[in-house]
């Protein structure tokens, strides 16, 4: 009965897996706290930009910009899908992909010139499996997307939108809501939605100071001209950061579950192994006893 040996081998293999998954969990935990810190700083920036727009709006300026004007009819749209480069992160990529794929099918029917752009190896291969060729794909965004890199993308979209070659930009990514809640969503980034909506009301309540007390250099209009593209960029950047944070959380949870599973499996296997070994010893002993008895007779 060589069963005990194979059981032991299996147990060793699972121990190795256990070690690996635990390490991966620890790594993604460290990455997560870093990504989280970056997301928080980006939020600080976003808040200030929104406040600035609020002040502009209160100076009696009509907040409009070519980036905020919807194009009718929508002829060409871009769907940008944010997935991760690496797997082993539970349902993270699957959730984004499921949503993106259904949106993509709708886009193909809605408009004559839809374009697909995918970030992350996982998404690229998932779309390739479906037989959809993305117009552009990126794999250089890692778990810490740099603003400069995202800015390049943002500039291109902006240019295309202003030139009329792009009528709509949608992004499918995982939005981070809280530690225990991340949702895959599709959002429209261009045309840019309202920048101030809820902010204006809140600001008025906070300090009802004279609204037009600001001096503007060079003029509110010129500043608005700059603020709107900036807030578009930061919005896109925020999506990347959210996706990075959510990916780390997903990996953390997945690896934690894997580690726990491995532990349970090791325990169960140890039990079976011990029983098998005991059985082996017993049968060997019985053989020896049987042999001795046969000799005695």
């Amino acid at each position: 009965m060589a069963k005990a040996r194979t059981l032991d081998k299996r147990r060793k293999a699972i121990r190795n897996i256990h070690k690996i998954t635990r390490t991966m969990e620890l790594i993604s935990r460290a990455n997560f706290s870093r990504a989280m810190a970056r997301a928080v700083s980006a939020t600080a920036y976003t808040k200030r930009i929104t406040a600035l727009v609020g002040h502009l709006a209160r100076s009696g300026l009509n907040v409009t910009h070519p980036l905020m004007q919807p194009h009718e009819p929508v002829r060409s749209g871009v769907l940008l899908v944010l997935t991760s480069n690496r797997g082993l992160c539970g349902g993270y990529n699957a959730a984004v992909f499921r949503l993106a794929a259904s949106r993509w099918n709708a886009m193909v029917e809605e408009m004559p010139g839809p374009c697909l752009e995918v970030v992350g190896k996982r998404g690229i291969s998932a779309f390739r499996f479906r037989g959809v060729q993305p117009r552009q794909s990126f794999t250089h965004f890692n778990d810490k997307p740099a603003f400069a890199e995202v800015e390049v993308l943002a500039n291109r979209y902006q240019e295309e939108y202003l030139a009329g070659r792009l009528d709509r930009l949608e992004i499918a990514y995982t939005r981070f809501e809280s530690l225990s809640r991340q949702v895959a969503v599709v959002e429209t980034l261009l045309p840019l939605g309202a920048l101030v909506s809820e902010e204006v009301g809140g600001n008025d309540a906070n300090h009802g100071a004279s609204p037009a007390a600001y001096e503007f250099f060079p003029s509110p209009e010129a500043i608005l001209e700059e603020v709107v593209p900036t807030s578009f960029k930061i919005k896109l950047f925020k999506c990347f950061l959210d996706a990075a944070v959510s990916e780390q959380i997903a990996r953390m949870t997945a690896m934690k579950a894997a580690t726990e599973n491995a532990e349970a499996m090791i325990e169960a296997l140890t039990m079976t192994y011990n029983r098998a070994r005991q059985g082996q010893i017993t049968s060997e002993m019985l053989e020896v006893l049987g042999g001795a008895e046969a000799l005695n007779e």
Partner: peptide, 14 residues
């Protein structure tokens, strides 16, 4: 260049 000392009037600039 613009210098800002304490008590500067509220402003927004590019």
């Amino acid at each position: 260049e613009l210098g800002v000392a304490p008590g500067h009037t509220p402003m927004i600039g590019r």
